[in-house]
Amino acid sequence: MSKFWRAYVAAVETFCFAGIAAILFVGVLQVFARYVLDSSLFWSEEFMRYLMLWIVAVGAGISYSRGQFLGMRMAVEKLPQGMRRKADVVAAICILIFLGVIVWYGIAFSWGTRRQTAIALGLSMFWIHISVVVGALLLAVHVALNELFGVARSSARAEHLMGAEEAL
């Protein structure tokens, strides 16, 4: 299990690294092509947008485990241990229900839009839209493992107390 988990984390990190690098490279290339070469790229903007959707999908689970999804913990922290645990389980179940709905309807949506094509890249929009399903599935796995089974919490969590707000 832990070997499998490490491989999964490594794969996610590699994808995120390559993805951000690609966005940086193409973003600079887009400026260079238009301003220096006088020949604008027509695919770059679409490529970056859709790649970012996939980075979010792949990274969201780990992001959750690293404590980037901030909530209002004031009230819960004041509860006794047992009650707090119950509140966390209820919260986790609500999250899993929500993510389940996203997965179910995300599949329906992706399938229903398969005949749309990405204008510049030419591939079926199914491959873009299905990213939300992958993201919700990975999040669900992380939420279930962290909150229901108490495993797979990233050791880096303490260093990442701040959450998504960190970027503001």
Binding site: R34, D38, S39, S40, F42, E45, E46
Partner: peptide
């Protein structure tokens, strides 16, 4: 069409 005209067609949000 715009490539044929010879402008530098630029997609932009």
């Amino acid at each position: 069409a715009w490539s044929a005209v010879g402008v530098n067609p630029t997609p932009m949000a």
